[in-house]
Simulated scan of single mutants.
Amino acid sequence: MGIAAGIGHFFQSIVEVIQGLLAAVVNFFQWILNSIIGLFQAFVNFIEGALGFAIHNFFILGTLAAAVFAYLLYSQRQGTTPVSRTIKNKRN
């Protein structure tokens, strides 16, 4: 009975080693796939953040440009800028 049990345990160990190797291969490919998915998700999050940052700054810079443009129009109509004085002098 001892020799038969030993042979049975030996073959069982061989099967477990093969199962362990197959599990290692499967886990390796899962790790590769999860790494690719994680990299893609990080890239998408980066693009989302960059676009959000650009859009918010676009509106802030647009508002600032509109304020400067309005000031320039106002000052040209009042004749307080050198450009508006030059334009008025050329008309006379």
Rank of each mutant, 00 (worst) to 15 (best):
M1G: 12
G2L: 12
A4G: 11
A5V: 11
G6Y: 05
G6M: 12
G6T: 06
G6Q: 10
G6K: 12
I7Y: 10
G8C: 12
H9P: 04
H9K: 15
F10L: 15
F10D: 12
F11L: 14
F11I: 09
F11V: 07
E16T: 00
E16D: 03
V17S: 07
I18Q: 04
I18W: 05
Q19F: 08
Q19H: 05
G20N: 06
L21F: 07
L21I: 10
L21M: 10
L21T: 03
L22R: 11
A24L: 11
A24Y: 00
V25D: 04
V26H: 04
V26M: 05
F28P: 02
F28T: 01
F28R: 02
F29Q: 02
Q30F: 04
Q30H: 00
Q30R: 05
Q30E: 10
W31N: 09
I32R: 01
L33R: 03
L33C: 10
L33M: 11
N34V: 03
S35A: 10
S35V: 01
I36K: 04
I37Q: 08
G38N: 00
L39G: 07
L39E: 04
L39D: 02
F40R: 11
Q41P: 00
Q41M: 09
Q41F: 02
A42E: 01
A42I: 02
F43C: 15
F43E: 11
V44F: 04
N45D: 11
E48W: 06
E48V: 12
E48C: 13
G49P: 01
G49V: 07
A50Y: 05
L51F: 07
G52K: 02
F53K: 15
F53C: 15
A54T: 08
A54H: 03
A54R: 10
H56W: 12
F59A: 14
F59N: 13
F59W: 13
I60V: 08
I60P: 01
I60N: 05
G62P: 01
G62L: 13
T63H: 03
L64S: 08
L64C: 09
A65K: 08
A66W: 01
A67K: 07
F69M: 13
A70M: 08
A70V: 09
Y71G: 11
Y71M: 15
L72N: 05
L72A: 03
L72G: 00
L73M: 10
L73Y: 02
Y74I: 14
Y74C: 13
S75V: 09
S75N: 07
Q76I: 06
Q76M: 15
Q78I: 13
G79T: 05
G79D: 02
T81P: 02
T81V: 04
P82D: 08
P82F: 06
P82L: 13
V83F: 01
S84E: 04
S84G: 06
S84M: 06
T86M: 15
T86K: 10
K88A: 14
K88M: 13
K88I: 14
N92A: 15
N92P: 02
